[in-house]
Simulated scan of single mutants.
Amino acid sequence: MTVIEARGLRKTFSIAKKVGRVRRKRVDVHAVDGIDLTVETGDMLGYIGPNGAGKSTTLKMFTGVLTPTSGHVRVCGLRPVPDRVRLARRIGVVFGQRSQLWWDLPLRESFALLRHIYRVPAAEHAQRLKNYVDLLDVGPLLDTPVRQLSLGQRMRSEVTAALLHAPEVLFLDEPTIGLDVVSKEAVRSALAALAATGEVTVVLTTHDLDDIERLCRRLVVIDHGRVMHDGTLEELHRAYGSRRRVIVELDGPYGRLEVPSATVDRIEAEGRRQTLSFSPSDTTAAAVIGAVAAAAPLRDLQVAEPDIDEVVRRLYTTPSGVPSGTPLGESLEG
């Protein structure tokens, strides 16, 4: 079942730009420029891009905060702006520093107020509260005023609050930004457990690519308001030339390893330690390890997965976001 559908979605802002010393003129800025996107029930979608790419603007149109300049968008079958009140009961939202908790009230009272706002029956609320309090480890915080919570504690509380009315879709804008290691792991573990149930569709924007690797089955990369990639993380690696590495420690002094060029495309030698890079689309780690074992005795080895940061940087710096030799229609959408 489709829960989010966008076709030709655009948002244009008109801003005043200085011309000369005194004069200004109005200039149109296309924050979102013709996005086509379909999200199915139970998806965990990673929505990433550089600052100014249009991520937050897209989410604000999905949630009814902003009106699209043109295009078509439906969330849970509703039009986000005209049906904003009805939609609010069917989605959960965590937007950066915008809190839905009451600053001076104990956390428990904020959750109780949200129950009345969303008109959730008391028994249902109590059961969900117990489940999510345990999942996000906020039990010890329930009697603490929100203003006394740390950033990590507050973010876990915000996610809990967004889930208490049983939303069909959960929108998360940078949920782990600025969090300590413990809080990041708590939020990621909770979202992973939530995704495993398939009961809630999650749309996640983030600059922390570890979130993507850990959580998201599907990845949408946007830049300048357009979709540059829509698919799995593995497809992104293949399309933009990711390299896996086999790092070996040899059992004794040895020169630069000699292995078939069809197996690896680069070898970095540092004494006994040598690093062999290869394309996952051309060969496998097992083939590389076999070639190395045939060439020299091994003491230890490890396989390093591709660095997603480098893959995304390559996508942004490739002209038009299209890898060399790839037909335009296969990788550039919108």
Rank of each mutant, 00 (worst) to 15 (best):
V3A: 07
E5T: 00
G8P: 00
R10L: 03
R10E: 11
R10C: 12
K17R: 15
G20A: 03
R21E: 11
R23Q: 13
R23C: 11
K25C: 11
V29G: 12
V32C: 02
V32F: 00
V39T: 06
D43Y: 04
M44C: 14
T57A: 08
F62E: 09
T63S: 02
P68S: 05
R74H: 08
V75Q: 01
V75G: 01
C76T: 14
L78P: 09
D83T: 05
R86H: 13
G92S: 06
V94M: 07
V94A: 08
W103K: 08
L107E: 08
R108L: 05
E109P: 01
E109T: 01
L113R: 09
A126G: 14
L129M: 12
V133R: 14
D134R: 15
V138G: 08
P145E: 06
L172E: 09
D173T: 06
L179E: 06
V181D: 02
V187P: 01
R188M: 14
A195C: 03
T197S: 14
T201C: 10
V202W: 00
T206S: 14
L209D: 15
D210I: 11
I212K: 12
I212M: 11
R238I: 10
A239D: 15
S242P: 08
V246S: 03
G252K: 01
G255I: 00
R256G: 14
R256T: 12
P260E: 06
V264E: 09
V264F: 03
D265T: 15
R266H: 12
I267T: 10
E268C: 02
A269C: 10
Q274G: 04
Q274P: 07
T283D: 13
A287Q: 09
I289S: 12
A291S: 12
A295P: 10
D300G: 05
Y316G: 06
T318E: 11
P319H: 09
S320T: 13
S320P: 11
S320V: 12
P327C: 05
E330N: 12
E330P: 11
